[in-house]
Amino acid sequence: MDARSIILRPVVTEASTAAMDDKRYTFDVALNATKTQIKKAVEEIFNVKVVKVNVMNLKGKKKRQGRYVGYTKRRRKAIVTLSSDSDEIKLFGDNSDNN
């Protein structure tokens, strides 16, 4: 698998942005990706050193529209911990130049 097809998108929540201070980043990943594939993909894309990868499988939530009931898509979430000597990942553009 290609590195860009393994890492789908960053998860931006209040808890995940607070964890970025400890060099822990959260990503949505492909459903069939393994921990070693996720580690190699993050190291290849962002040029950082990954220490640990935690993976969670999340079931879809039950949603209804009137009398019709369905589920949202299931997803797989990975929390990646970087080494202390590696650089931070820039998920957001730096707008300090636009004053």
Results as ranks from 00 to 15, higher is better:
N99L: 10
A41R: 03
S84V: 09
T36M: 11
N99W: 05
S84K: 14
G93W: 02
A33C: 08
K35E: 14
D21A: 14
V53R: 09
Y71N: 11
S84C: 00
K59F: 07
S84N: 12
N98T: 14
G66S: 08
Q65D: 11
S86V: 01
D97W: 13
S5G: 03
T17D: 07
V51M: 10
D87M: 05
T17M: 15
I45T: 03
V11Q: 02
D97M: 10
R4G: 07
E14A: 11
E44P: 00
N47L: 05
R24Q: 15
K23W: 01
K73P: 00
A15F: 00
T72A: 04
L82Q: 00
T34W: 02
L58I: 12
N98A: 11
A15K: 15
I45W: 07
R76W: 01
S5K: 15
T17G: 00
M20V: 04
V50W: 01
T81C: 03
R75L: 10
L31G: 07
A15M: 07
Y25V: 02
N57W: 01
T81A: 13
E14T: 08
I6H: 04
Y68G: 00
L31S: 12
V42I: 13
N32P: 00
K52M: 08
G66L: 03
A30N: 11
E44H: 10
T26H: 07
V50S: 08
G70V: 00
K35D: 12
L31N: 11
R24S: 09
A78T: 03
K35P: 09
R24K: 15
A18C: 05
A19D: 13
G66C: 05
I79D: 06
A15C: 01
G60D: 05
F46L: 04
K90W: 01
A30C: 03
V48Y: 06
F27E: 09
V48S: 07
F92W: 10
K62H: 06
F27R: 12
V53I: 12
V42M: 06
I45P: 12
D85W: 10
L31V: 09
G66N: 13
G66Y: 07
S5I: 00
R24W: 01
S16W: 01
L91C: 06
